[in-house]
Amino acid sequence: MRNWRAKTAAIAAVSALALVTACSSDNEEEGTGGSGGSGSSDLSGTISGAGASSQEAAQGAWQAGFQSANPDVTVDYDPVGSGGGREQFVAGGVAFAGSDAYLTDEEGELSGAVERCGDLIEVPVYVSPIAVIFNLEGVDSLNMSAETIAGIFNQEITTWNDEAIAADNPGVELPDTPITPVNRSDESGTTENFAEYLAAAAPDAWPHEVDGNWPVAGGEAAQGTSGVVSAVSGGNGTIGYADASQAGDLGTVAVGVGEEFVPYSPEAAAAVLEVSERVEGRGEYDFAYDLARDTTEAGAYPIVLVSYGLACTTYDDANTAELVREYFTYILSEEGQQAAAEAAGSAPLSAELSAEYQAAVDAIAAG
């Protein structure tokens, strides 16, 4: 059903976009794409990307919409994970990448990307809550503070009727079932975002360095977002973390923020981005953010994933440059963001942010 809605939304968006483009062709140069996405009908060729598995559903919607408008274009995306996508992008193996964490130089990724690209383009394309998912017979939702979540994943809270869980869930009958935490086995931007939240919001309960690799041994590990969801679904007493679009029918946690417990939603996730600041000292077209993980802002959901699109300002091949520029233009457009929201439950970027990021995408050209 989700795939059907995604394709329907994408086709509808492209139909509307084609009408706008036809009406305004006298005022725009062919291939600029305008503010509503790609308007080019003569594009052809193939571009490949790789990266965050959290973007998989959104990328499917973007591919459907963009390729419907440009039937001679093929866009491939391998949801190999953020770490793998960044590695392939820096090495020049793919034209673009998706990453759930912005590039740093801890492993030479940022400098490597700049060496490849000249000016790196790094823009948020997908904003979504990370859901704390669980499978506990008879329980559909729970409230948890940051300290409780950290204690569970640090394996210090080990049964579901622990007093720390019970205190925030009066009236809920909690069994003495053992808790089985499930984490990602692969290097993951989802893991890094989740760990950043734990370290910022519950530093005493989470004494681990933030990294894309899970730091606590002894739990159950699974490959990729789908692997974590499958492992949690297949057990009783299991708990994990995954992009909210993949939560399905599993139980989910409302997170303590200030004096309230906030369930995940696209709107609550977007609220965190609005109170966060851009990382200093980056390139002109690099829009990396230090997210306000420890916010007490009412209605904000702090376990949020801001997934980036990575591209170069300069490509050796002119056709590749044009395809990447037009594809990213569609992704950032109102139609593209709405297609992702329909397919994956993500939070659409505001018109102001999209326009700011579009200025970076417009810089893509052949060298």
Rank of each mutant, 00 (worst) to 15 (best):
M1V: 14
N3F: 06
R5C: 01
T8Q: 08
S15H: 12
T21Y: 00
D26W: 03
N27Y: 10
E30N: 06
G37F: 01
T46M: 13
A52Q: 01
S53G: 15
Q67W: 01
P71E: 04
V75P: 09
Y77G: 02
S82L: 00
G84M: 09
V94H: 14
G98H: 05
A101T: 10
T104G: 14
T104L: 05
L110T: 06
G112H: 08
G112I: 14
E115F: 04
E115Y: 06
E115C: 07
C117K: 07
N135C: 00
G138Y: 13
S141L: 02
E147D: 15
T148N: 01
I149W: 01
I152E: 01
E156M: 06
W160C: 01
P175M: 11
T177H: 00
P178S: 15
I179L: 06
T180W: 02
R184V: 02
T191M: 08
D204L: 09
W206V: 07
W206C: 06
P207V: 06
E209K: 13
E209R: 08
G219S: 12
A221N: 08
Q223E: 14
S230N: 06
A231C: 12
G237I: 11
T238Y: 10
G240V: 01
Q246M: 12
A247L: 03
L250Y: 11
G251S: 11
V255Y: 13
G256I: 03
E260T: 14
Y264D: 02
P266S: 05
P266F: 02
A269G: 15
A271V: 04
S276I: 14
R282E: 09
Y285T: 09
Y285I: 07
F287Y: 14
E297L: 09
A300N: 11
D317N: 14
A318I: 14
T320E: 15
L323F: 03
E326Q: 15
F328V: 12
F328C: 13
L332T: 05
A341M: 10
A344V: 08
S350V: 07
A355I: 03
A355R: 02
A360I: 07
D362S: 13
D362A: 11
I364Y: 03
